[in-house]
Amino acid sequence: MTITDQWQQLLATGLVVGSFYGLVAIAMQIVHGSTRILNFAQGDFVTAGALVMVTLVSIPWLNVWTALPILVIIAFVFGVVFDTCVIRPTRSQPPIISSLATVAGGAILRGLLLLVYGRSTYSVKPFLGEYRVNIGSAFITSQDLLMLVGAAAILLSLVVFFQFTWLGKGMRATAQNPEGALVVGVNPQVVRMIAFGASASVSAVAGALIAPIIGARFDLGFGLVLPAFTAAVLGGLGSAAGAVAGGLSLGVVGAYLDGILGSEVRAIWLLGALLVLLYLRPYGLLGKRSSE
């Protein structure tokens, strides 16, 4: 089959992968938006989510639907711990140093996952069983569908959180003007802590959702950092909807390009895309030029 024959399938796959990228990009942005820190350990957060999900579903008295909320809580606590141990000690230094600290934190997390889970790939059963949905000449699995729905649901809840809750507004305010936010009673320490917790939760759900599709392995996440960053830049750093839009378009374009060029060279065109993007539209495809 040629690319032209496969276009429907590639589109479907691209959308699924893209919604996953979008989720990771959102997770990245929750942190970057409120702290200006680029979390290089984001991919490892996703890996941890996938692997912990493997453990949770192996517990006899838990099923997928009881495991997911537990995973979200564990991930949130983990995010707070990560913030306390890795970011907090560098808080008086510029964001770039804290970003470097996430590189170190990621190495530690990867090492711990390697210790616990080793180098094997774990397969996870699809949450809804082995169903397929045929659309034209393409099909998507029930898990693919769940990924799309899950991304939409998380996006929606985050939009509600950031637009309508006091804490969400406070976090956006901190992103724009930390001192100003502090003056009106938003504690940047707490904001950062919650940002890491929420980011870890979203990452973990993304990891849990992708695990049945590609399998869980200790280094699953590292390759995700670049596409997620690119998706976030594509969507304009600072908008959750933009991140998902960026993820979806990157997923679809990526599926076609992988089909033509092979997935090994993905990093090369991602670099090209980033260069062009940051030169032409540094505020993203959907983002507006900020007042900075």
Partner: peptide
């Protein structure tokens, strides 16, 4: 990896 990470931190 753990050792490098902790030392760098």
């Amino acid at each position: 990896g753990i050792f490098y990470g902790i030392s760098m931190l």
